[in-house]
Structure formats: C-alpha cells, structure tokens
C-alpha cells in the first residue's frame, strides 16, 4: 500500500496527475476570460474534470506553477530564462509550453476621437519617459469633448505581462512616462478609455466595446498601417501581436493532457475566436 502511494506520488512531474479531477489553472489577466470560457465549454465535453480558473498576472501564474499549487499556468508572454531556471531548481521539472492562440494588443481611443492611424514612433513619444507628445494637437487632431487637449495615458500596473509586452515591442524597453493611469486589468483600461474622451490606452483586442475605437498601427512611419483583425494577426502583419501560452510542469499526462488536446482541437480554438483572440489555425468557417 505504501509502495503504491509512493509510486503515485513519485511518478511524473505534475501535481497529483493520476487521481486529480480538478485542474487548477491560473495566470495572465489577459487570458482569464478565455480560460474561463474554455473551462465552461469543456464541462460539456466531460463532467469528470473540473477546471478552476483564476487570474493575477502572467508572473503570478508561473510563480504558482513553481510552488506546485496549480497544474496549468496561463501566460501572455514568453517564460523568462530566469523563470525556467527557477522552475527547474524548485521542482526538478522542465516547464512545457503550448501556444493556444494569439493576442493582438489594440491601441484604444474614445470613439469620438478623429484619429485613425498611429505609428510606433508616435506611440513611443506619447508613452515613454521624456517623450515630447502630451497634447492631442501635437498629433494634428482636435478631440471633441476633450476641452484641455491633454492626452490622458491609460496603462497597466508595472507587473502585468501586457505592460512588459508593450514596453518591449513599442518602446524598445524604454520606461513609461510617469503620471499614466495604471489600471489593474485589461477590461478596466477599455472601460476608462470609453468614459474619457481625452484618453489613449492599450489592451487586448478582445476587450473592444462600442464606446472605443481601435487605431490602425504602423510599425514604421513610412510603412503600412494595419488594423487589428484575425487575419492581420495570423499573417503577422499586425505589429503588436503576441502568442498566448499555457505552461505545465513536465510533459502533461492524464486529464491535463486531454484538456490541452481539446484546447488545440477545433472546438477549443472556436472558443479562442469567440473571445476575440486569434486561433492558432483558422479552421473551417473563419471570417
């Protein structure tokens, strides 16, 4: 009996892989809606496995994986080499990565804002430390409802994956200008921009609503401006897109393996598209 237990506990890298019927899933706030939608849809596939989803941020998910409190970590950024090292040291296992979809980071402004196109250079001038652009008139537009012409920058808290991704891709790792409104969630950014005519912010494409407008983005001033859409993300023409990762400890087995396979199946990828993200492969009936 003791031997059997020892084999059960000692085998494999994951947490209680054999007996578990609850999969603990945690991580990126960008992906929390998606992960919940997956969990709900999966309940119709099998009732034997329950998936518990929580957010907190990409870093939180990976840290929890390291401590062994969860089975599956969501991350909207690549795992850092330092984190791989720590996972190895803490658990003796390799983190295994699955790419489950893509996220296009849209640039949001209020729907009354006449601006249509923005370049990386302009974005950087607005958001980076010592960037010279602080007023809408400097971009050549006059925003109705924004009497003082001031650009209100809406950003994310400094530990979020979205913040780091924007800093890396758009601002070449230079720091943000102080005084931006740092929201604690992707949805909050879009909500605030929708309520504030003077605002500009970045957030996941899936969070768009009727009160905001997504700008076309050009990576270079002389290059083409691309709207954030499914195709432009998949074809990698849209410049601020990233992959959505799932991490497990070691090669996944049992229920976890089945779940990951289902996520990559057509049914799972349909959920990705329904949440406003871009599936890994465009199955039948893609728009």
């Amino acid at each position: 009996m003791v031997g059997v237990l020892a084999v059960l506990l000692g085998s494999g890298c994951g947490r209680r892989n054999q007996a578990s019927v609850v999969i603990q899933n945690k991580g990126s706030d960008t992906m929390v809606n998606l992960a919940q939608a997956w969990a709900e849809a999966y309940r119709e596939v099998t009732t034997d496995v329950a998936i518990e989803v929580s957010g907190g941020g990409s870093g939180v998910g990976i840290a929890a994986l390291m401590r062994g409190t969860i089975d599956l970590a969501n991350s909207s950024r690549d795992i850092k080499p330092r984190e791989v090292e720590e996972v190895r040291r803490h658990t003796g296992c390799e983190p295994e990565e699955v790419i489950a979809g893509y996220d296009a980071l849209a640039i949001f402004v209020h729907r009354d804002n006449p601006l249509e196109v923005i370049t990386f250079e302009q974005l950087s001038a607005i958001f980076r430390e010592d960037g010279p652009v602080t007023r809408w008139s400097q971009l050549g537009v006059q925003v109705p409802g924004c009497r003082r012409d001031q650009i209100i920058r809406v950003s994310r808290q400094s530990s979020s994956g979205t913040y780091e991704f924007f800093r890396e891709r758009v601002m070449q790792q230079r720091d943000f200008k102080l005084g931006s409104l740092d929201m604690n969630g992707s949805k909050e950014v879009v909500e605030l921009v929708g309520n504030t005519p003077c605002a500009i912010g970045y957030s996941g494409m899936g969070y768009a609503n009727g009160r905001v407008k997504m700008l076309r983005v050009a990576a270079r001033s002389d290059g083409p401006a691309v709207a954030p859409t499914l195709e432009s993300t998949l074809s990698q023409r849209y410049p601020i897109a990233r992959s959505l990762h799932l991490y497990t400890l070691g090669e996944p087995t049992g229920a976890l393996r089945d779940y990951l396979d289902w996520i990559l199946s057509e049914a799972g990828q349909r959920v990705v598209r329904d949440c406003g993200y871009v599936p890994v492969r465009l199955g039948g009936g893609a728009p």
Partner: peptide, 25 residues
C-alpha cells in the same frame, strides 16, 4: 497615477494603493 498633483483634477496614487496593486506580483 504616479504624479505630483498640481490641482484637484490630477490623478494620484497613494502608498497603500501602490502596495495593494504591486505586492501580489
């Protein structure tokens, strides 16, 4: 927003809120 307020319409950040927002991650 990390900001020295010049008027009541400026956004600010407090010590407590900063700890709450950042300690988790």
């Amino acid at each position: 927003a990390v900001n020295l307020p010049l008027g009541v319409f400026d956004s600010v950040r407090t010590l407590t809120a900063n700890v709450a927002a950042e300690l988790g991650e």
